[in-house]
Design a protein around this nucleic acid. Structure first.
Lengths: 233, 233
DNA sequence: CTTGGAAACTGACAAATATCATATTTTTTA
DNA sequence: TAAAAAATATGATATTTGTCAGTTTCCAAG
């Protein structure tokens, strides 16, 4: 990972999205002075399960997957984090080792903010703490929903769901394909199934004319039907 | 549900376990004066998915299941909450409708603390906010682990796991059975499978002499083997 | 007690998913 | 651009899990 100083927190786009927005100009200045901007290339690891984190990473650009490997060696992607998301918050809050690994899905740019700068705010600035809390509460709700989906929905339903999710969150490229491409294996690791089962289901969707593909790019051609599948009909 | 004033927050046992421990005597007094103690009988609903909560529930006694129903009508139990747990925190923090339903698994006793009393502290008392935050961070880590288990482990592994979990968390009764009895259906709803599959797996464990049962009570007779199963061998 | 209803259990079968083997296509790199 | 590597695709088969249709056991109310 390459490091270089650059940009001011006061002007940071992601400030609109995360808890930093509750901080005053002076507080931000302080953080800005010690934060480090890092560029991470596609495929590189940002941190790994079990590491001790001494700070958090704000995603400025690019997309990262947060995953955990189970005893049998398979990876489970728990979350896909994009611009404005903060990685490693939980470990910093609880002072525990990381529970998840973070890997860049494309070229990324992120700010590393050392823990000690945040600790002051978490301990004394309740507006900041509350903003972090609200974010975590939302993450928890999201996680609970994922649990229900994993437990109660079929692979077919879950794959339909992630396709709609990807299009909704990343939009389309100039040719109408979902702007974010995940490998079939990553898709499988998000929905918790085998790579082959995932590929097969995509083929089936293709035959049913719900999607079309070009290489790893996917286009949703019948969203209404996909939505119906998600609901289990 | 029956309501009656009773007990002081200053003396509350659960104060040791949750964020209330960060509050001063005066702040606790204030809460104590407006909180309401409620008795909830086995099977009764504490709140239901989609309700607006105007406060939180501290569990003083008994056990509750937190569940969410999926589109196909099945229930998924996301968490089992016991003494010291606070229900409804997330909805109060985010000002959203509840995401989960809470139902008593046995006779319970809980304190209802109106939202407005907590809001003051969440907004101004950063030690309190941080305590709530840390708790939520732990819940989130737990939830991420559940996602991985659901996605990557077999029903056999997950049932072995919940049996060990129940024994570890609730201990044994006088005859060596797990002190907390869940119906087979509830167990199925925790591990995300059909009731029949759950019953069959328990029968199989019985034949393999890993457990023995009496009615709905379960005794673990070979924990080492159960642990091995959880790890996938 | 006894008895009616719920919960637990079992069997048979269907459907979904995993696994292994291999072919084909796409992407990367030399 | 060709060769190598990686990703995608598909077939065959085994395993797991779900569903439906019952029977048996348990337990609480009368």
């Amino acid at each position: 990972m390459e490091h270089h100083q650059e940009g001011r927190c006061e002007n940071c786009i992601i400030r609109q999205l995360n808890a930093l927005k509750t901080l005053s100009k002076e507080e931000l200045k302080k953080i800005s002075d010690s934060k480090v901007t890092k560029a991470v290339k596609k495929g590189e690891t940002i941190f790994e399960e079990g590491e001790r984190l001494n700070g958090v990473f704000c995603v400025r650009k690019g997309v990262s997957k947060l995953s955990k490997s189970s005893e049998n060696g398979k990876d489970q992607i728990v979350k896909i984090a994009t611009k404005g998301e903060v990685l490693g918050q939980r470990s910093v809050v609880t002072e525990e080792l990381t529970n998840l690994s973070a890997v860049a899905l494309n070229d990324m740019e992120m700010c590393y903010i050392p823990k000690r700068l945040l600790e002051e705010n978490i301990n004394d600035n309740s507006a900041f703490t509350k903003a972090v809390l609200v974010k975590m509460a939302e993450d928890l709700r999201f996680a609970d929903n994922v649990i229900v989906n994993m437990a109660q929905k079929t692979v077919r339903q879950r794959i339909a769901e992630i396709l709609l999710y990807l299009e909704k969150n990343f939009g389309l490229d100039s040719e109408g394909y979902i702007a974010m491409t995940l490998s079939r294996e990553d898709i499988a690791n998000v929905v918790g199934t085998a790579k082959e089962a995932c590929i097969r289901m995509l083929s089936s969707f293709k035959k049913e004319e719900l999607i079309s593909t070009q290489g790893k790019r996917i286009q949703l051609t019948n969203k209404k039907a996909l939505n119906t599948i998600v609901k289990g009909l």
